[in-house]
Structures are given as C-alpha cells and as structure tokens.
C-alpha cells in the first residue's frame, strides 16, 4: 500500500467538500477516480499534495501520516502531480518547466537520465524544449505536464484529468503513455471524466459523488455496473 485516505473530511470555509472519504492505493497500481463536476476530485488531489489540508482524518503515505507535512516534503518523498488543465508555467520554456519538476533534486547524472527518459516518452517535448510553454498546443502542453511530473522521479503520480480538452488521437496517446509509465514502476492515481478510457487502463476505480465515495471496485466490475454504464459510459445517453 502506498497511499491511504482514512475518513478524510475537507472543507473550504463552510463548504464541506470531501465527506468521510476512504481510498487505498496499492504499490504499482493504476487507480482511477471518477465523478461528475464539483464532486471533489481535484480537492482529493490537492489534499494529497497538501495545498489543501483535511479538517479530519488521516492521509497515510508509505505507512506514515502526512496530512500535516508541508507540500515540499511530500514532493521530496516521491509524490508528484499532473495538474488539472496542465498548469504549466506559461512564460517559461519547456525545458525550464521540466527543470521545475525536478526542483528538489540535484542536477547530475540522475537528472540527465530522467530527462532522456522524458524525451524518449515524448519526442515532441524534446523538439519543443526551447519553446515558451504557453505557446504550445493543448496536447503538447499535456505532454510537458506529464514530463514535468516525471522529472520528480515520483513513486506516486497524481494526475488530474490528463485527457481534458484533447482530441481523440492525443487521448489515446496519453493513455498509452500512462500505462507505459506505470509499467516502468510508478503508481498512478488518476482523476478522469473519460470513464471509458480510464476504466480501460485502470486496475481499480472509485466513484465520487458530491464528496462521497458511492462505488468502488476493480475496473472490470465497474464496467459491468449498470449505474456506471448509465452515468459515465454514456450507454443510455444520460448526461452526468
């Protein structure tokens, strides 16, 4: 087990967003978090990263409670984010964005290795390394956002809607690469609205509804679940 949420409550002021939420994420898994708009998916990610503090409950990472740990320390211990809507540093170059991903690490052979790995996964990123990040296309920016996270050499990669706003070709490419990253040994916790794609690569998934986990199970189980088929896989054309 690499990460565990134990009865987590998160508030923004009076707004109660996460309600008694429990997740467990095993070493080496791809776990997907599904749910409609405003259900608390991004808040989950921010709670893991520590930019939002839970009001109750415990976040356990590698056997240690981290809910009071500063964000930088979590990053140092191997948690890295791919943020919703990419959130690159728009006026820095692609290479500088990658460097920021490795902010807490020393420059040296390991950095160079990771850079080569990122360039190998995303040849397009290598081509564009001197371009200002804000001028890249959405798909290219997503590649950089993933590359930036990999530069932290993470044990746990937290991805918030990596397919958002991408054309179908890019979506497939992104999911292929996520699987590849996972095979190379990184655990992945991934928020997705694209349930179809998410369930096709995830081992397990949770479904969040207005801050509560209403369903969880293996990807195969969830794909068979009538509620999921209806609400998230679009079989009955019901809007989420």
């Amino acid at each position: 087990m690499i990460l565990e949420f134990k009865n987590i409550d998160t508030h923004y002021g009076d707004l109660h967003v996460l309600k008694q939420v429990n997740y467990t994420i095993g070493d080496g898994e791809i776990v997907s978090l599904l749910g409609g708009n405003a259900s608390g998916k991004s808040t989950t990610m921010k709670t893991i990263m520590g930019v939002v503090r839970p009001t109750r409950g415990s976040v356990v990472y590698q056997g240690q409670a981290i809910e009071r740990m500063p964000t930088a320390e979590r990053v140092r211990r191997g948690i890295a984010p791919v943020l919703e809507a990419r959130r690159l540093f728009p006026r820095m170059t692609v290479f500088e964005n990658l460097e920021m991903g490795a902010y807490l690490r020393k420059r040296g052979p390991e950095f160079d290795q990771d850079l080569e790995r990122v360039y190998a996964l995303f040849p397009r990123v290598k081509e564009r390394r001197n371009q200002i990040a804000g001028t890249l296309s959405g798909g290219e920016q997503q590649m950089v956002a993933m590359g930036r996270a990999l530069m932290a050499r993470p044990k746990l990669l937290c991805m918030d809607e990596p397919s958002m706003g991408l054309s179908p070709i890019y979506v497939e490419q992104v999911f292929d690469i996520i699987q590849e990253i996972n095979k190379q040994g990184t655990t992945i916790f991934m928020v997705e609205q694209n349930a179809n794609m998410a369930l096709s690569i995830a081992h397990r998934a949770y479904v969040l509804q207005t801050g509560q986990v209403v369903l969880s199970g293996t990807a195969t189980e969830l794909r068979q679940n009538p509620l999921i088929r209806e609400a998230y896989l679009g079989e009955m054309q019901v809007a989420v």
Binding site: T71, V75, L83, F89, R91, L104, A152
Partner: peptide
C-alpha cells in the same frame, strides 16, 4: 539561478510552483 527560476514560476502560478516543491 535555481531560486530565480522558482521566483518566476511562483509569479506565474504560485500553487503549481508549490506542488513542484517550491517553498
């Protein structure tokens, strides 16, 4: 410089910079 880059990153997106490990 490393901290100079962190300054620029923070100016452009403080929350994202924090999640890269910038204090």
């Amino acid at each position: 410089s490393r901290i100079g880059k962190a300054m620029r990153a923070t100016a452009q997106d403080a929350e994202a910079a924090r999640m890269m490990g910038v204090e």
